[in-house]
Design a protein around this nucleic acid. Sequence first.
DNA 1: CCCCCACGTAATGTCAACATTTTTATCATT
DNA 2: AATGATAAAAATGTTGACATTACGTGGGGG
Lengths: 240, 240
Amino acid sequence: MDTTNTKSETLADQAYDALAKSIVSGELAPGARILEVELAERFGMSRGPLREAMRRLEERRLVERVSQRGVRVVRLTGPKLHGIYKVREALEGMAARLSAQNMADDEIAELREMLEAHERYVRQSDDYSQNQQDWDFHDRIARGSKNEMLVSLLSDDLYQLLKIFRNQHKSKRGRARRAVEEHWRILAAIEDRDPEMAELMMRRHISAALAVFEPSWAEDAAQRDQADTADWPDLKPEGD
Amino acid sequence: MDTTNTKSETLADQAYDALAKSIVSGELAPGARILEVELAERFGMSRGPLREAMRRLEERRLVERVSQRGVRVVRLTGPKLHGIYKVREALEGMAARLSAQNMADDEIAELREMLEAHERYVRQSDDYSQNQQDWDFHDRIARGSKNEMLVSLLSDDLYQLLKIFRNQHKSKRGRARRAVEEHWRILAAIEDRDPEMAELMMRRHISAALAVFEPSWAEDAAQRDQADTADWPDLKPEGD
DNA sequence: CCCCCACGTAATGTCAACATTTTTATCATT
DNA sequence: AATGATAAAAATGTTGACATTACGTGGGGG
């Protein structure tokens, strides 16, 4: 973790950036406790700014806090991931629709180039998992919508959250190629300036991804149920 | 503002709740500066927990912070509101779809009763503006989706944000009645357990609301352009 | 062997003081 | 009257100390 060479101005903001990066990169694993005293020593700052940073992370849904007990990196269950994919379907469908209307011609050309590079990679790769090129494609569509709130919700919130769980996005053989084909269909609709088709293609794409990934989430859940009771016991209601 | 009689445990959480309520209720007006020292005195606590609370509000998009200069209640422009309505369309369309599938029969019955009461109110009222019954209807649909992330994004984030701008939601004569009619169509589709129709009706409803409200946002923007330069001057880029 | 209690340690929550930055008010000059 | 400089006041950012809560371990009793 590195708090130097960042553009943020206050220590609290620097700590937030560094922590968010560590969480999204997996360096701080899902479920990991985040101890203020330890971080204060590591970052060379007092606990105050760290607490501020962690409050921001909390509202970004990247960490979960229990009062008086501390903060840990969020863990997502199968049902929650399912819920997030439904939200993705809605938001990204709208993003594709708006991109077909609002995306600049040079942006669309760049997107085509990116997709060509992505296709070449997938043709010569055995890598099943979702990679940065996938995320870049989706990020570009979100930004192409020219809708600030959409970008914020997708690129700043949901994609960061999902990146934590890159291991939950392992596909079946062939899915990566299929995904690229679906990307082409989305791009074609955007190039055609056809909002309805763009939305339909994007929603189908997200639905298909969900169908592929979801079975493995149930398996993961079985393993996780054991670990849960071991390290963060049920909290009793504390009065009304 | 009141920090007593709340269920929150830490002072920071109490302050967050109290501040969020004040912002959403309009007591703290859009654009208002939030001064730590003043609040510390009013709430009878030190500035530390207040800073934590404000960091949470920042990520909830209810306040905007400029480093070293402070925090103010968010102001929404016409284009931003437009963007939020597009996001609403997407998310609430999905919420209605999922509610048609997942909502319990007794929940649907309650929703019907609520809508009947809402209709009676509108028939005998001259009130054009969007009221709590409207929000309650939408909140119920979001919760009926049984999708945590959808509920969080809509009911915890977007609706709170939009409530700040209740004065931006003044309608034309007759819109309130029309809205109730549209609510009936949404409910009918949910009762029929017809996800496609529920989504279509909800998306049309949000689109129609946008079409009604949006013209007045442009007028508001003209007035606001003058005020902006007066009280928060342009920030110069500070290096890279 | 299991449960309960007491005590010490670790971690979180808060406070007030200090450091730094920004804003405001005042005065001098043009 | 307007502008610029300076000093004081106000506000934000950070620190370390203290208060409070939670956790872990050991000892004793049933």
